[in-house]
Amino acid sequence: MNPPPEPERPAQPRQLPTHLRRFSTAERWAHRATALLAGVCVLTAACLYLPQLAQLVGRRALVVTVHQWTGAALPVPVLAALGSRALRADLGLLNRFGPHDRQWLRAVLRRDKRPSARPAHKFNAGQKLYAAWAAGATLVMLGTGLMMWFTHLTPLVWRTAATFVHDWLALTLGIVLAGHIGMAMGDPEARRGMRTGSVTRAWAEREHPLWQPEAEETRQPHRTPEPR
């Protein structure tokens, strides 16, 4: 995609690059690997759970094994990428909520779609909530999954309870994950950011007006604090 011209900003003091760096190579590979593992997890879960797919696919022992191992491996890409400073910096940004995030959430509740009503730093409030919730939910799935996998570890009541939580949380995660993918499908430039690592300046200024990586770099070379 070609970056659109920027006629409304003719008086730049110097020629700014048209693209901004959004995600590092390590982050993008961690995302790819996580997406692949999560996809296999969801597909195998569907084949174990939905009668129509179970009848189509069968091979229960094999599908169970694939589901167990991809599930166990799901946190590995992100944990491995924790060695990347860019990922740790982004996790810091995802953790911090400011007043603009409350404003963003209120605008969503009011269905106010104007970009000016939805201020965001590098990640908007929805992305922050999604990241934190998905990370927690994945670990709950992992914990309850391990209780079902290694049946001798816990007494039966716990195992039945773990199955109950695993089943219902799977349904919830499936819906939220569909939302995550749906949002990405609706925003080609956001997808480009995750695919190539950079986004156009125009997109960043519209969707993430408070995110100014260059200004922050010149001010503090090693940290990118979020305004509060």
Partner: peptide, 25 residues
């Protein structure tokens, strides 16, 4: 704050396991 959501989700999961017998009925 993000950490609180993360830990809250984990906590709810653990609570869900404890409350599951009643919820399941």
């Amino acid at each position: 704050m993000g950490r609180r959501v993360f830990l809250g989700t984990l906590g709810l999961g653990a609570l869900g396991v404890l409350a599951a017998p009643a919820l399941q009925r």
